Amino acid sequence: MHYDLTDLKVFLAVAEEGNLSRGAARCHLAPSSVSLRIKDLEEAVGAALLVREPRGVKPTPAGRVVMEHAQRCIAQLEQMHADLQPFSQGLAGHVTFFANNNAIGTYLPDDLARFFALYPSVRITLEERASDEIVAAVAAGRADLGMVALESDYSHPDLDFLPYKEDQMVLLAPLGSPFADQASVGFAACLSAPFIGQQQGSALHTFLMNRAAALGGRLDVRVQVSGYRAIVRLVSSGAGIGIVPRSALEEGDETQLAIVDLAEHWARRDLHVCVRRQPGEKNHFREKLVELLCPGRAPSNPDLNLSR
C-alpha cells in the first residue's frame, strides 16, 4: 500500500488545525487542492479520515490512527534530514559511541571537547547504555566504540578492552550519620538507609538495584535525580546516602559530607574503551578517537594501529 508523503503532511495540518482553510494556509495550498489530497489519502486508506462539524473538522477513529503514525513518520524523516545535513556541508566522518553514565558524567566530556577541537568536521553519536549492553552493541557492530566498567578479569572473544581511567564507587553520607566515622562499609549496610539514586533506567541505578537484589534486599530509594552533582547536594543536605564515582566529586565536597570507601570488589570501576578486533568497515576517525582516549594502548586488531 502506497501513501503519498505530501498527502500525509496535508492531512496532518488540517487535522491539527481542526479547520480545512487553516490547514491549507499552513501548507501554502488552495483549499480545493487540500480537499483533493485528503480524498486521495482516504481512498488509499479505505476509510474516512475527517468528519465535518459546525466549526471545522475532526479526525475519525481511522483518522486518529493516521495522525499518530504520520506524526512519527514525519518526525523521523525530519531527524534523518538533520542527521544527513552535515554530510552535504562537508562532514568528514561519523563515530557511534556508547558509554556508561560514569564516563559521560565525569571524564568523557573534556576528552570529546579535545577531539572536536582537532576534528571539527566529525560528528559523534553518543548514547548512554549499561556496560553489558555496550559490549553487545560493539560486538554486533551497532556501535563503533564503547566505554565500559567491567570486572578486571572480564574478556570477550571479539573485543579488545583498552584502559582509559581508574575510578572507584564511594558511599556519600551526611556528616554526623552512622556511616560518617567508618573507614569503609559493605553495601548490605546501605540497604537500611534512605537512598538518593539516579533516575530509573540509568546504568548506575540498574547496577545498584541488581546488586541489592543479589543480596536478597532492595535499596530504600527516597528520591531519584538525573546527575551526580544532585546526589552530592541532597546527601550534603541530610536527605539520605548515595553512591557515586569518586571522579564525580569536586574540591570541597569532603567538607560538606562524608566520603566512605565501599568494601566490595565491584566498587573498583576502572573504565575501558572497547573495540572490535575485526571492525569490518574502516573508520579513520574511530582510530583517532581511540588514540586520543587511550594513547599508546594498542589493541590487538591490525585495523586499529594507533601508531599511525
Rank of each mutant, 00 (worst) to 15 (best):
Y154I: 05
W266R: 08
T6K: 05
F98E: 10
W266S: 09
V244E: 04
G216F: 11
A258P: 03
Q85G: 01
R286W: 01
T255H: 13
V223K: 12
Q200K: 11
L77F: 06
L292P: 05
V260W: 02
G90Y: 06
A230F: 01
Q198A: 00
I231A: 13
A188H: 14
A25I: 10
L150C: 03
F115P: 03
A239W: 10
Q200E: 15
V51F: 06
R22N: 07
E68I: 03
R129I: 01
G176R: 11
H69K: 15
L118M: 11
M67H: 02
V95D: 04
C294V: 13
A92K: 09
D4I: 06
L257F: 10
N101Q: 14
R64K: 14
A24P: 14
L112I: 02
T6S: 03
H156D: 13
Y228W: 15
N102W: 11
A212R: 01
R114G: 00
Q200H: 12
G146I: 09
T125I: 05
G90M: 09
L20I: 14
S226F: 11
E68D: 13
L150Y: 07
G242V: 07
L249W: 07
L262V: 08
F116C: 00
T125G: 09
N101F: 03
V170R: 09
H94S: 10
K39E: 13
L304S: 02
G176I: 00
V10Q: 02
I259P: 08
L118C: 06
C73K: 04
G217Y: 10
P279F: 08
D253W: 14
E291H: 12
A263G: 08
A203K: 03
R52F: 08
S177A: 00
Q85H: 05
V170Y: 01
H156S: 06
C73W: 13
P163E: 09
R277L: 04
A298F: 08
A180C: 00
A62E: 11
E78F: 03
A140G: 14
Y107I: 00
S152W: 08
W266I: 12
F207N: 02
Y154E: 14
D303G: 00
A173D: 11
N102M: 12
P120N: 07
K282M: 04
D110V: 00
C274H: 04
I124E: 05
L292A: 06
D270I: 06
R26T: 07
G141Q: 07
V14G: 12
L208K: 03
E264P: 01
A212Q: 02
H156M: 07
E43H: 12
R268K: 14
D153W: 08
E78W: 02
A44W: 05
T106E: 09
L219W: 14
L108C: 04
V290R: 04
A136T: 14
R211M: 13
L306N: 09
Q89K: 15
A24L: 10
D158W: 00
L49K: 10
G141T: 05
A92R: 12
Q199E: 15
F207T: 05
D220L: 15
N100W: 04
I124W: 12
N305H: 12
G176S: 08
S33P: 01
P86A: 10
A136H: 08
L292F: 09
P245N: 13
A230S: 15
P174I: 01
P174S: 04
S226Q: 12
